[in-house]
Design a protein around this nucleic acid. Structure first.
Length: 651
RNA sequence: GCCAACGUAGCUCAGUUGGUAGAGCAGCUGAUUCGUAAUCAGCAGGUCAGGGGUUCAAGUCCCCUCGUUGGCUCCA
């Protein structure tokens, strides 16, 4: 027996309708496993939810979940199309991901590339047109194994073998195609009409480097043509904001083959961004009671033996430098921590020194694998907004919160909101972590309580902690959807032991300090790549490589412009004059579309007579005439307060 | 590092079945001196990433190297 529940809107949660299902069930009217709910024309099999014993109240199929079902079904259709065209291919897994889905496939000896997308899409369209009904079957473990073994679907066999005892094994079939799947699925293949194969990539079976590399096909699917087109349009728009694209026009940095991949040459414009950020950090850190230090870029081997980095992270360090007349090797430093620890240990410390906060924009080098490098996002030479806070265990909670507050200050000034916080705790099962569980617990509580007391949202991840302690990472999603850690705040109670860090307490006895590692502004490289995309290159005045551009309407007014330029430069304003032969229109166009200069001053007879300027700000439609003195005051205020750009329309 | 794709002028890209390189923008020169998003004309610019091979002939086909991109793995 089967039943269908019909609702009118995709966006409407199903819980109310599900209540009705439950009522029917209790009345004994529904006993079979083929109950389906109709979701805006798309029929979804709710069997899984109904048969796994969970209460129906917990199943809230919002439109987003409906999309997932659609996409998962699209993955099946793609797999079916692939099997028709490549009968010897072996299927692995095909889950949904944000905005789409993928399927991992072993094509064996056959070469596969995006050239083949067209014929797969054509075959998928055929399958869709046939409106093949999707059927669910429950199999015993033996039946399932026998079926996949016969078809030599080795990955499916592997998957079935790994299913936990007692798990119901289900398959979904459409036409000649059957796949191992939990469901739920749409009722027939005709529901999937709007899809596009996006890219092909390699992926290790089960995500393990030692396993065979399979071919992963990424694709997207949507309920309507409009939504599909919208999505593709959004991707296109996002690509325009890609920091590598904007860099080409704004000339911020350069990577040169002769210098090496992942090694950044900062051009004058990019250097301004670095220096302004650094200035900002110095001011903030001064307010928060940090002391600045400088440390060398290389160090003797022994230091990294002490720190444990040579043991844990040797692979991502540049190889050692052999010295002709010294026995010990030198390394380029991959992090600043040990250097700062040595500053702490440079003289005896007392509780009166605590908390000691040492900060540095520290240059480090990491030998990232070549395939992992990406523009400014992943590089081999990076400059870190680093600092270490040495405090007593009693101070830990407050210091932790203070660091988090510093993060929030930065984000507020830069108008960053597209992030989430991730609290990484240790996994007691794994031996990667030190064994002092009481210590871990105290440190983890300090973090968690700190976050809670500050009312911050965060996600807890077990087993992601550093080997020396728990941490809070702030994850940002960049414009093309890649998620990266941009800031970090880590508790370290191992450093004291390793580096023999001690302070004398009020009772004259020696104690170990707790160390906080923190980098709210991450590294210049990654943070700036993120800022370029965040502002789409149209930086606030305080950060903009070019803060003001003077545009005389004709040659007669160049001299007036020069006078203003000279005056503004005395105020440390980054100002240029466009005195070229272009038309006024062209000059404005250049200033707006290329460097996205936040402030343009149009200078002609009117302005010169009144010692005035006409201000045209980036992103604002109106422009304003004012006295030069008034403009200066306004500009300095903008810079001093690190004012955010204003916009007339959402970009 | 692995899988795949790509690499033509500073940038964005054309370049048919192999017959020895082309446009727009940028640059330079000249004219224009302009009041709010591209003034006109001319000039110059390339060992087609590098190396090897097939061929009478290679930007086009094959191999290797380097680099870039999308993923995977990694990310102190």
């Amino acid at each position: 027996m089967s039943a269908e529940i019909t609702i009118n809107q995709t966006s409407l949660p199903l819980s109310e309708n599900l209540r009705a299902v439950e009522a029917l069930k209790q009345a004994g009217a529904l006993t079979d496993t083929t109950i389906a709910a109709k979701l805006d024309g798309t029929v979804i099999d709710l069997t899984r939810e109904l048969t796994t014993g969970g209460t129906l109240e917990t199943v809230d199929i919002s439109s987003e979940e409906g999309l997932n079902v659609l996409r998962h079904s699209a993955a099946h259709i793609m797999a079916q199309a692939v099997m028709r065209l490549y009968p010897t291919a072996k299927l692995a897994i095909g889950p949904t991901v944000e905005n789409g889905f993928y399927y991992d496939i072993d094509f064996g000896e056959e070469a596969f590339s995006s050239e083949d997308f067209k014929k797969i899409e054509a075959e998928m369209k055929k399958i869709s047109k046939k409106k093949l009904p999707v059927e669910r079957k429950v199999l015993s473990r033996e039946e399932a194994l026998a079926m996949w073994e016969e078809q030599e679907e080795i990955y499916k066999v592997d998957l079935v073998r790994d299913l936990p005892e007692g798990e119901t094994i289900t398959t979904y079939s459409q036409g000649e195609f059957t796949d191992l799947c939990r469901g739920p699925h749409i009722q027939h293949t005709g529901r999937v009409k709007f899809f596009k194969l996006m890219s092909v990539a390699g992926a290790y079976w089960r995500g393990d480097e030692k396993n065979k590399m399979l071919t992963r096909i990424y694709a997207t699917a949507w309920p309507s043509k409009e939504e599909l087109q919208d999505y593709l349009k959004r991707l296109e728009e996002a690509e325009k904001r890609d920091h590598r694209k904007i860099n080409k026009v704004m000339e911020l940095y350069h990577i040169d083959d002769d210098i090496g991949k992942g090694l950044i040459l900062w051009l004058p414009n990019g250097t301004v961004l670095r220096e302004e950020l650094e200035r900002f950090a110095k001011e903030k850190e001064f307010e928060y009671g940090y002391d600045r230090v400088y440390t060398p870029h290389i160090t003797k081997e022994n230091l990294y033996q002490t720190s444990g980095h040579l043991e844990h992270y040797k692979d991502s360090m540049f190889p050692p430098m052999k010295m002709p007349d010294e026995e010990e090797d030198y390394y380029l430093k991959p992090m600043n921590c040990p250097h700062h620890h040595k500053i702490f240990a440079a003289r005896p410390r007392s509780y009166r020194d605590m908390p000691l906060r040492l900060s540095e924009y520290g240059q480090v080098y990491r030998y990232e694998k070549s395939g992992e490098l990406a523009g400014l996002l992943r590089v081999r030479g990076l400059c870190m907004n680093d600092a270490h806070v040495y405090c007593t265990e009693e101070q830990l909670g407050d210091e932790f919160k203070r660091v988090m507050q510093l993060h929030l200050d930065y984000y507020k000034t830069l108008n960053l909101t597209n992030y989430y916080m991730r609290l990484s705790l240790h996994d007691p099962e794994k031996d990667k972590f030190v064994t002092d569980h009481a210590m871990w617990k105290r440190a983890e509580d300090a973090c968690q309580n700190g976050l809670d007391e500050m009312g911050l949202d965060y996600k807890v991840v077990r087993g992601e902690a550093a080997f020396y302690g728990p941490k809070v990472d702030v994850q940002f999603k960049n414009v093309v959807g890649r998620e990266e850690t941009n800031s970090t705040n880590q508790v370290d109670f191992l450093a004291a032991e390793k580096f023999k860090l001690r302070y004398v307490g009020t009772d004259g006895k020696e104690y170990s300090p707790v160390v906080l590692h923190r980098a709210p502004l991450g590294t210049h490289e990654r943070f700036i790549s993120f800022l370029i995309e965040h502002f789409a290159g149209a930086f606030p005045t305080w950060l903009a490589p070019e803060q003001v551009r003077l545009i005389p309407v004709g040659q007669d007014f160049v001299e007036y412009a020069r006078n203003l330029q000279e005056d503004l430069r005395k105020l440390r304003i980054r100002v240029t004059i466009d005195d070229g032969g272009d038309s006024l229109n062209k000059k404005i166009r250049n200033a707006v579309t290329k460097m996205k200069v936040p402030n343009l001053l149009i200078l002609g007879a009117k302005e010169r007579e009144n010692q005035a300027v006409t201000l045209r700000r980036y992103g604002l439609n109106r422009q304003e005439s004012m006295s030069y003195e008034a403009f200066k005051a306004w500009l300095l205020e903008q810079i001093a307060t690190r004012a955010l750009p204003e916009r007339d329309t959402e970009e």
